[in-house]
Amino acid sequence: MRSPKGDALDPKGLVAEAYKIEGITPAECRSIFLDWALNVQGDTAAAITVLLERHSPADHPMSQVLREGLVVGERPRRRGGWRSRERP
């Protein structure tokens, strides 16, 4: 069995392999990204930035998914709770 290739930014080598797969779809890249994000240690935004610099094809689906990973979503707000159920 081969040992997984990678480094601290891409522990399993998933992102590097995604760039080698010809005809990979954005959905497949998102799946790879999720697996990568669950296994990377430290600041993911910094890791994504380095990975984008490392892998040059800007029009590759994995590059698009990585750029989407840099977008910070709005923090979820709490809705409801006991005050919303309290009756006057």
Results as ranks from 00 to 15, higher is better:
R87M: 10
A45K: 11
E86G: 01
F33T: 07
L52C: 09
P76K: 11
A58D: 08
P57A: 13
A27Y: 07
E53F: 02
L38E: 12
R87E: 15
T44M: 12
K5E: 14
G23C: 12
I21D: 10
G6L: 11
A18I: 02
E28Q: 15
R2E: 13
R75M: 10
G6C: 11
S56D: 14
A16C: 01
L51R: 00
E28A: 15
T44H: 06
K20H: 01
E74V: 12
P61A: 14
E22Y: 04
L9A: 06
A58M: 05
A46V: 01
S3V: 10
L52T: 06
P88M: 09
L52M: 12
D35V: 14
D59N: 15
A27K: 14
T44R: 14
S31R: 15
L14V: 05
V71C: 01
E53V: 04
G23Q: 11
R2Q: 10
R2W: 05
C29Q: 03
M1K: 05
S63W: 02
A8R: 10
G80S: 08
K12I: 05
R67P: 00
V71M: 10
I48Y: 03
T25E: 04
A58P: 00
A58N: 04
M1T: 13
E74Y: 03
V72K: 15
G69F: 04
Q64K: 11
A16F: 00
M62E: 05
A45C: 05
P4G: 04
I48W: 01
Q41W: 09
E68L: 06
R78A: 10
R2I: 13
L14P: 00
V15R: 00
R85M: 12
P26H: 03
A16E: 09
D7S: 08
P76G: 06
C29M: 05
W36V: 12
L34V: 13
G81K: 07
E22M: 06
H60V: 06
G73S: 14
P4L: 15
R75C: 09
S63Y: 02
K5F: 10
R79A: 13
A45R: 14
V71N: 03
H60Y: 04
E74I: 08
I32N: 08
D10N: 05
A45Y: 05
L51Q: 00
K5D: 08
L9Q: 11
G81T: 09
K12E: 15
